[in-house]
Amino acid sequence: MAEMNTQEYWRWPEYRHTVLDKDWHNSKIITAGVDVGSVGSKAVVMLDGELYAYSAMRTGGVSEATAVKVMNWAIEETGLKLDDLHYVVGTGYGRVNVPFAKRTITEIACHARGAHYIYGPTVRTVLDIGGQDCKAIRCDERGKVLSFLMNDKCAAGTGRGLEVFADLVSVPIQDLGKVSLSVDEEPQPVSNTCVIFAKAESLALLRQGWPKERVAAAYHAAMADRIVDLLMRVGVEKDFVVTGGVAKNAGVIERVERLLSIKSLKPNIDPILAGSLGAALFAKALYEKQIGLR
């Protein structure tokens, strides 16, 4: 039997990386953060509070297994073993499913803390756009959460919605944002209350003969509307930053910036790691407390 080899447009690349050319044997405190999200799982290892290694992959059906897998992948080329990690904090929807974590902290606190690490102490508003939800977080100069809002159950305006859309228009998910920005004139946004309705509406537009760029623009505009609604309710103060996987989609971010008349800071570290970075930083503080350094 012959099988068709279909491209999975929705599939984003999974990756691991060792950042620091350092020997972990010389570091005092080795901590890790594992962020088991609804779509993606991320693991970060820090040496004395500096980013050392990380990995990101899709969350599988069994969160515990994904947590182990993503952590082991992050340390794969470092020579580190799970037992070498002094303290691990779990975060994300699957935070209670990280078997080797000593403690769990919500992704809201972790994203604020991680954004503080990535973008610095001037951050006051963090927008985290994850796989299945979207959070607007206000924080202070230490990365401490002052207030936050989360979207309701629906996944419109999130990464999962983009995956569904990439599949619909047959554009690789990494290129979607750029494609959506290639229109001369911005069309009316599609329905922004439900992924399935938005997809149905986009499909109708394609059938009407709209080019996929224009439909992509309408879809991204709807996501931006929904995200801005959330941000307006929590109130946006500079500096404004975006974390989570969708931070890499310029089509969403540029539209959000346009609607808010505010630019977001650009990251030097992959913003999908913000949650796991925050968790690893909390792990360091907790370990210091445990051994009496704090």
């Binding site: 919500t106 809201i108 401490k144 207030s147 989360m150 909390f282």
Partner: peptide, 19 residues
């Protein structure tokens, strides 16, 4: 229920403070 739990937990962390 799961996102509600996350919100309440994050709120408690916010009021109490995390390390």
């Amino acid at each position: 229920i799961a996102p509600i739990k996350t919100r309440i937990e994050a709120f408690i962390e916010m009021v109490k403070g995390v390390p």
